[in-house]
């Protein structure tokens, strides 16, 4: 192409802008994590007494004092917080009160289950939701669009647990096609346990993933549709029609890209919330993931597990936000190149 060198020349400031932008966001992310860490640490300090949780009924006052001292609980607040952050960075969240195991081991054991479930349902929601949103925006009066919109209304209004139970009743109990609980057989890949490679693992995944995806999917359909309708009304779409461009180019190249700019943010946060709020689905299907671990930790005031879960979810959100910001930067030139 003519003017090739010019394009290269433009890449340089773009890269510099990008670096500055990303390092800014990283810095802000660290602050967010430190604040969440403070809250998680606050759990130890202010919800119950850790010493009480460790010692028995007949421990003497002196022994308690010694334990408090040895745990460093007499140190100033800031020193203890620093120690907590230092350990957390290394993945050390202490021992679970309930299971007497290191929290990091528990998480490592449960995390793959939740992540696999979440990713599968996030992909389901995106791959079905975005095209359906586009379709209903482009052909608002067609029979399919009306059908999609009615279904999506049901998806939004039916509670997740009900959908899960109905699926279990139909496919699990009546038809006996799919297993109703657990992950099925898993294969260990190093510390990661995966259900993707066995028939029973995949079969077990179907119902929980659908249950988790339906709400997100309906949300995405409605969001994409609303944004797209908005974009289709803009002057630049009208101008594109007036220039005789083909509808395919207008709808999928111009309109869709402009639709995605605002949609990316919300979809990113939705994916985060799929991971964070898989709790209900995991309970319904007895899915051995983090949500289930968290529920049990709450009912037994297992503070180290709760603190670790809080930090991990915050971390997931921060990472997703960072990815969203970078995507934004790639999609929208107004952020990249200053006028």
């Amino acid at each position: 192409m003519i003017g090739g060198p010019r394009r290269v020349a433009q890449e340089v400031p773009r890269g510099a802008e990008m670096f500055k932008f990303v390092s800014m966001r990283l810095f802000q992310s660290i602050i967010v994590m430190l604040v969440v860490g403070l809250i998680a640490f606050g759990l130890f300090r202010f919800v119950g007494d850790p010493v009480n949780n460790m010692v028995g009924q007949d421990t003497t006052l002196e022994e308690r004092e010694a334990l408090t001292e040895s745990l460093g609980l007499n140190d100033p607040f800031i020193v203890q917080y620093g120690r907590f952050v230092g350990k957390a960075v290394q993945g050390d969240f202490g021992m679970s009160y309930r299971l007497r195991q290191p929290v990091s081991d528990l998480i490592a054991e449960r995390f793959p289950a939740t992540l696999e479930l979440s990713l599968v349902s996030a992909f389901m929601a995106l791959l079905l939701g975005v095209p359906m949103g586009i379709y209903t925006a482009l052909k608002p009066k067609s029979l399919f669009s009306r059908g999609f919109m009615t279904l999506s209304l049901m998806g939004v209004s039916l509670p997740t647990f009900l959908i899960g139970i109905l699926l279990i009743l139909f496919f699990g109990v009546t038809l006996r096609w799919l297993p109703t609980f657990g992950r099925g057989e898993v294969i260990q890949l190093g510390w990661w346990s995966s259900g993707f490679f066995t028939a029973s693992g995949l079969k077990s995944l179907i119902m929980p993933a659908i249950t988790l995806a339906i709400f997100q999917m309906t949300l995405i359909v409605r969001l994409v549709r609303a944004e797209m309708l908005e974009v289709l009304r803009t002057d630049y779409i009208k101008f594109a029609h007036a220039r005789g461009l083909s509808p395919r180019l207008i709808n999928f190249s111009i309109a869709l890209r402009n639709t995605l700019v605002p949609v990316i943010t919300i979809i990113g946060l939705q994916v985060g919330s799929i991971i964070a709020f898989a709790i209900i689905t995991e309970s319904v299907f007895q899915w051995p993931g983090m949500g289930l671990l968290f529920i049990q930790a709450v009912s037994e005031v297992d503070i180290p597990v709760m603190a670790a879960y809080l930090l991990l979810i915050a971390f997931v959100f921060v990472v997703i936000n960072l990815i969203v910001d970078i995507l934004y930067f790639v999609v929208d030139p107004r952020l990249r190149v200053q006028s």
Binding site: Y236, F239, H241, A242, G244, L245, R257, V331
Partner: peptide, 25 residues
């Protein structure tokens, strides 16, 4: 009609700030 729009009849709109696609060069 698409062969006439842009090809034989060109159109200019009022607001230059909104009539260009912001995401394309």
């Amino acid at each position: 009609m698409r062969k006439i729009r842009g090809k034989r009849i060109g159109m200019i709109f009022q607001d230059p700030l909104t009539s260009l696609n912001p995401l394309e060069t």
